[in-house]
Amino acid sequence: MSLDVVDLRTFYAAPLGRVAQRAIARIVRSWWHDTGGLAVAGLGYAIPFLEPFRDEAVRVIGLMPAEQGIVHWPAGGLSATALVEGGQLPLPDGSIDRLLLVHMLEPTEHPREVLAEVWRVLTPGGRMIAVTCNRRGMWARVDTTPFGSGQPFSKRQLQALLRETLFSPERFGEALYVPPFERRSLLKLAPFFERTGKRMALPGAGVLLVEATKQLYRPVMLRRRVPVRQAIPRLEPRLQGSFRRDNSFGDAADPVNR
């Protein structure tokens, strides 16, 4: 199920969306605290989390899938967003140092193709952060937010998907322990939910974050050598019957010799 850019923009402009943006951005920024001299890109609807990088990165762009739609960003000046196909990014090989995926893996039907294209455009040693809905969390069960659409992931599923597409997972994080409801009392307690959930490592966070590095070489699996059994038995010469002095074979019961 594809997400609509109008719904995404409306969600992040609402109080619950701003709470979600702050909780996720805090982790993203702590992992990428210095992007000076780097090229940063966001794929999906990542523009709410790209603003802190504009003052230090060489360039920051937002790539939005055609099924979702596009918005002008940043608000002032020239637009730094582009409409793309998830499996065909209009970027040269090895041109991006950091790439952030938000609302991208859950709605797509071909996540491996998306990650293969991300791998292509990342520089050697480049890093990506994928923000996905946690299938064990409450946010995946409520369809009133964008995190309730599409296919949620577990930590094990993300690990397997990344390794299949030649990424090495480095670290995982969780956010959105606050219930996904537009209630003022809950939103005021959002910082308490986040601190308590992380301190006690509670299960059921709404969002999983994973940082992974681009793996340059495909791992070679070692195979255990198994001795091959001899399929054909060893044959030895064997004489049948009696051997006569005239170097001819004969049978002891040959009537000629009687």
Rank of each mutant, 00 (worst) to 15 (best):
M1D: 11
M1L: 01
D4L: 11
V5Q: 02
L8I: 10
T10S: 14
T10K: 10
A13D: 15
P15D: 05
L16Q: 04
G17T: 05
V19H: 00
I27D: 11
V28F: 10
S30K: 09
W32S: 00
H33V: 02
D34C: 04
V40Y: 09
L43I: 09
G44L: 11
P48D: 03
P48V: 09
F53R: 00
R54A: 08
R54H: 06
D55A: 13
A57T: 14
A57Y: 10
V60G: 04
I61M: 05
L63I: 06
P65G: 04
A66K: 14
E67F: 01
E67A: 08
Q68T: 14
Q68W: 04
G69L: 07
G69D: 05
A75E: 14
A75W: 10
G77H: 08
L78T: 03
S79N: 14
A80Y: 07
A80M: 13
T81K: 03
A82C: 13
L83D: 01
L83V: 06
L83K: 09
E85R: 15
G87E: 09
G87F: 06
L89R: 00
P90I: 09
L91G: 00
I96W: 14
E106W: 10
P107T: 11
V114K: 02
A116L: 03
E117K: 00
V118Q: 03
W119Y: 08
R120E: 11
V121W: 02
T123A: 12
P124D: 06
P124L: 00
G126M: 12
M128W: 04
M128F: 01
T132N: 07
C133N: 08
N134L: 07
R136N: 07
M138C: 05
W139N: 00
W139P: 02
A140V: 08
T144M: 06
G148L: 04
Q151C: 03
Q151M: 13
R156D: 09
R156L: 03
R156Y: 02
L158Y: 04
A160I: 05
L161T: 03
E164S: 13
L166H: 01
E170T: 14
F172W: 13
Y177G: 02
F181A: 10
E182T: 11
E182M: 12
R183N: 10
L186R: 10
L189S: 15
L189K: 15
F193V: 03
F193A: 05
E194N: 09
R195P: 00
K198P: 00
A201T: 13
A201Q: 14
P203V: 02
G204N: 05
V207R: 04
L208Y: 09
E211M: 10
P219I: 12
M221C: 03
R225M: 14
V226N: 06
P227N: 08
P227H: 01
P227K: 06
Q230C: 12
Q230H: 14
P233F: 05
E236R: 15
R238F: 11
Q240N: 11
S242L: 09
D246I: 02
S248K: 15
G250S: 04
G250D: 06
V256T: 13
